[in-house]
C-alpha cells in the first residue's frame, strides 16, 4: 500500500491495515501523537478500527517535552 505521510510518498507492507498498525510500523506506539487521515484527526480509541487505503494522505505529529 502506498501512502502519503507528512508529504512524502511511502510504501508500507501489506500487514499495515489500520492506524494502529501504522504507528507500530513506525515505532510510534508509545509516543504521544496526533494522527490525521485525509484531513480528519483520528481519536485515539479509533486507531485500531480506522482502516487505511491506498493513496491516503496521513499527517503524524508526535509530542516531545524538551525545550
Amino acid at each position: 500500500m502506498t501512502l502519503t505521510i507528512n508529504g512524502e510518498t511511502v510504501t508500507v507492507p501489506d500487514e499495515v491495515k489500520t492506524v494502529s498498525d501504522l504507528l507500530s510500523y513506525f515505532q510510534l506506539t508509545n509516543k504521544l501523537a496526533i494522527v490525521e487521515v485525509n484531513v480528519r484527526i483520528i481519536e485515539k480509541h479509533e486507531y485500531g478500527t480506522t482502516a487505511l487505503a491506498d493513496g491516503d494522505r496521513i499527517e503524524i505529529v508526535h509530542f516531545v517535552g524538551g525545550g
Binding site: N6, G7, I34, E36, I41, E59, V61, H62
Partner: peptide
Amino acid sequence: LVSFDLWTNEYAAVRIDAV
C-alpha cells in the same frame, strides 16, 4: 499543530479545531 525534523527533512501540520 506544526512539526518538523531538520535532519530527515520532514514536515507535518495538523489543523486542530476539530479536536
